[in-house]
Design a protein around this nucleic acid. Structure first.
Lengths: 146, 146
DNA sequence: GAGTTTGTTGCAAATGATTCTCAAATGAAA
DNA sequence: TTTCATTTGAGAATCATTTGCAACAAACTC
């Protein structure tokens, strides 16, 4: 069993829940996806295995709580997620124009945030730094038109 | 005319739009509100003046673009906003349990972010740093129960 | 001033992501 | 195999947000 599957199983057991085939499939799909994904995109990947969209929506919060995925940006009214690999967390730069998402390392800020958390006695589950604006491509074209 | 009203008017004119009574009312309401607000809460404040919720929804993106308000956290499926006063931007700490929102200064991180933006040639419109987890109250009670 | 153009609004209806309901399926445990 | 709690797919329901539309309004044109 893969690393993150073990982790998920443990998490579920702690809550008296089971690692069912559907859940395992959803987890696997979340980890094969190498970009951001939303509920529907993930479902597309596994609907052939007869896993319903409802189950995807039910499982996503579990993966979130288990710390295996994180909610990143919200685009077009849809929540997007990405898996966590033990990689350092990163910031998301979202272009308002072309909706490109650029990722950068967050470690430079991490310590400042952790320090603040200690002061607040806040138990961090997720950090999400999103910066919206215009990417270099759209910044240039905005100068031309408009 | 108040400062931010001038700013909004200028912004609108640049787009060939007008500062109508409804829009002015919405702007004013957004600035009297001293906490976060969502579309409905803002509408409650001004519906007596016969401004429809639809118009609120239509105006919010304009205020956003004009840089007068910012979208902060999303709670209970609703987008929340807050006005910008030229104050330094702040981080939002959202308790998953009691849904309290704590705000802290963001200036410590600002320079690191700006630096990164320069490297990416990214034109920043909004920075949003949201940290979810448990506030000190809920952290303690989580230890007891569950 | 009458007519035209363009932006605006409230209302009601539409949209669409997410959640819920429910009856059937599953699975661990006794 | 009976029990009992959990899970599931399918479809219905929910609810924030958008949109279409007809009536309005302000700015221009002639």
């Amino acid at each position: 069993m893969i690393d993150h599957e073990v982790q998920f199983k443990r998490f579920l057991q702690k809550q008296g829940l089971k690692l069912t085939p559907s859940r395992a499939r959803i987890l696997e799909a979340a980890f094969t996806m190498h970009e951001h994904f939303d509920a529907e995109k993930l479902h597309d990947l596994i609907k052939a295995d007869n896993v319903s969209l409802a189950t995807v929506y039910r499982t996503l919060p579990l993966l979130l709580e288990a710390g295996l995925i994180s909610r990143t940006v919200r685009i077009g009214g849809r929540d997007r997620f990405e898996h966590i690999l033990g990689h350092p967390r990163h910031a998301h730069w979202l272009c308002e124009n072309c909706q490109a998402v650029i990722e950068t390392d967050l470690s430079a800020l991490q310590s400042a945030i952790t320090k603040e958390a200690k002061a607040l006695k806040f138990d961090i589950q997720q950090i999400s730094l999103n910066i919206t604006g215009l990417c270099w491509k759209c910044k240039d074209s905005a100068n031309d038109s408009q």
